[in-house]
Design a protein around this nucleic acid. Structure first.
Lengths: 184, 184
DNA sequence: AAACTCATGTAAGCTGTTACATGATTAC
DNA sequence: GTAATCATGTAACAGCTTACATGAGTTT
């Protein structure tokens, strides 16, 4: 119960528990469906983090077998809820990190002849479009997986932000494509 | 000169050399000014990567002292240029990775009372705005650092994409702010 | 009965950052 | 002259991914 350093992955786990996820597995599932585009996680992060949070009294664990299948169910303690709320109110924030091989290619695209530049822009636009399509399919199939409760709307809000940016991006790439066609 | 595995950092280095950077230091400087928002790099990546590329014949190194200051100048070999062009034409692409603590907070914002939700959205909007401002300052001060050559326009294009997305984001957050105010 | 999903964990490895170490040059 | 910038590298660490290992439950 001594000093624990809470990182974003900690709050991801705490937050998912608060939204109704119970097992490590279901946290991972929910994250894949809902946060993968701005905060991906792997099981090899979730399980150790749950153990760490339990050691420090931010979550409680109890056995929750399903037939012969061993399973753990976790819930927030008061300390866990407090920590989550405190983080949500904090303004200390790691700067957002983006790594886009596509934009890196575009950055160096002057090395290509114009028709290859055009092909590149088309590919990037198409990739963006199909990614958005898949995102939308998933969101129709299961709205934020397990976590579907009355009064919970921010997951949808964040999703709609992602779609909005993606639409904007597609439009922007469309305009760039047109400009490049003129020089062709 | 045997098999070398080329990763995005390899092409970042090759690409910067092609745009006129010569030393590892100047590659890092150019990246900080131009690609940091979609492909950050550190010196501890650049120097070993340059050595690796030299070992495999994709770049040439020669001494380029400046007074008593030891300095290396690198240039692309033909193999290096070929590798860069081949990557630029390739459609094999690592999916873009984003990590945004801000969006993660927003995702879990249902846990907060409405006025704190509003404060959070305001903070996120303001952070986005000030980040864009700084980006713009840098871009005025030095257009892509050293790399400023006739016919090079994609670095500017990519920068303008970033600004466009950032503007769109600010607008989107503005609308969200208005919606939340109504419920206040 | 085969394939897929649910479920939990560990080990190894890769990528990338920060800190350390050192020293010359340039700008104020 | 002192601070900032130019310049090159290494070492330690943090974070995250992939592969390994295991087994039960569910769906086709």
């Amino acid at each position: 119960m001594t000093a624990i350093k809470l990182k974003p992955i900690s709050f991801m786990v705490l937050g998912m528990l608060r939204l109704g996820a119970k097992s490590g597995y279901s946290i991972k599932r929910a994250a894949d469906l809902a946060t993968d585009n701005f905060w991906p996680v792997s099981l090899a992060q979730v399980y150790p983090e749950l153990a760490r949070l339990e050691q420090h009294g931010l979550v409680n664990r109890h056995e929750d077998p399903h037939g012969d299948l061993k399973r753990s169910a976790y819930e927030l303690t008061e300390a866990g809820e407090t920590a989550l709320l405190s983080w949500l109110r904090s303004s200390v924030e790691a700067p957002p990190r983006v790594r886009s091989e596509g934009l890196l290619r575009l950055f160096f695209a002057d090395a290509l002849p114009v028709d290859d530049q055009l092909a590149l822009v088309r590919r990037l636009r198409e990739r963006n479009r199909s990614d958005r399509e898949q995102l939308h399919e998933v969101s129709v199939k299961s709205t934020v997986g397990d976590i579907r409760a009355a009064g919970i709307r921010f997951p949808q809000i964040v999703r709609s932000y992602g779609e909005s940016v993606s639409s904007h991006t597609e439009q922007w790439f469309g305009e760039l494509e047109s400009e490049l066609k003129e020089k062709d």
